[in-house]
Amino acid sequence: MNALVSLLAVLSIVVIAFLGAGAGLEVLFGVVLPYAAILTFLVGFVLRIVKWAKSPVPFRIPTVAGQAKSLEWIKHQPLESPYTRRQVVLRMALEVLFFRSLFRNTKAELKGGPRLVYGADKALWLFGMIFHWSFLIIFIRHLRFFTEPVPALVTGVEWVDSFFDVGLPALFATSVLLLVSLSWLIGRRFLDPQVRYISQAADYFPLFLIFGIASTGVLLRHFAKTDVAGVKELGMGLLGFSPPNLGELGLSGLFYAHLLLVTALIAYFPLSKLMHLGGVFMSPTRNLANNNRAVRHVNPNPQPVQVHEFEHWKEEFKEEIAEAGYKLERD
């Protein structure tokens, strides 16, 4: 059901773009909505970060997986339990770039009845890495539509990515890798009963959305081409705040579908779980050093701390508790 709703949402975005572009609404889909989405993205992203930064961190709560710094003769594991800022930065970099904590992912399985077996599960890490790195490379490649002159880095990335030189224009390795890893990530939610049970529409929607973006992108490059230089004219026009005459450019309906899917992704970004892009840096379990014994961490909450005592709570929710028929142990 969750999956179906998300799929329908993504499909309707595609249909709306086709109909809209056909009905002469190019300016809405090519100019107005992209600007609105980018504004939503920038403002929403910053507000989210500020909101997170405002929540007090009453104590240092890094989640550690190794020996903290202690006496000299006890071996300290700086990457597992960082003590200095340098070690925090290093641990964070490994987390952001290589998903180090996910590499430790385990799975619990019931084997032949009551036997519970724990095992390593690197597949999620592997496909997660493929997905994110492909996405980053594709993002960088697309800067060819948004920069003039195109930086050497972008051209270099394109060159490496088209290394296999299959077809004309050449097929990019990341196009295939992105679709494969996305299929795996979607399949995981369908096929693993535990994961399926906890999957919400908010989990399926971004996956289907990105799948839609990737597949329309591949179609546009290889099978249903449109005027690529015209696409760049639109991109540069948007950046320079003087969008071209879209009626004259005559970009295809499929291009508008691709664009509207991307527009939806950009606007949806700060409102959704995709904010883990910024959130990973704001996570106090990752960005704090485990040095509680050496450095005093002042509780930023106003003192005396406003507390909500159990007695108050019980009083406040008396009726609800009675209604639900709970028996509170202290009664």
């Binding site: 920038l42 970060i49 003039e148 004219e233 950046l239 910024g278």
Partner: peptide, 21 residues
């Protein structure tokens, strides 16, 4: 830093290039 990175295409093209086709 986030804003400088996301707005790269605008300041880069403004400084070194041209928005017109």
């Amino acid at each position: 830093i986030f804003l400088i990175v996301v707005l790269f295409p605008i300041w880069y093209t403004g400084a070194f290039g041209d928005f017109t086709p």
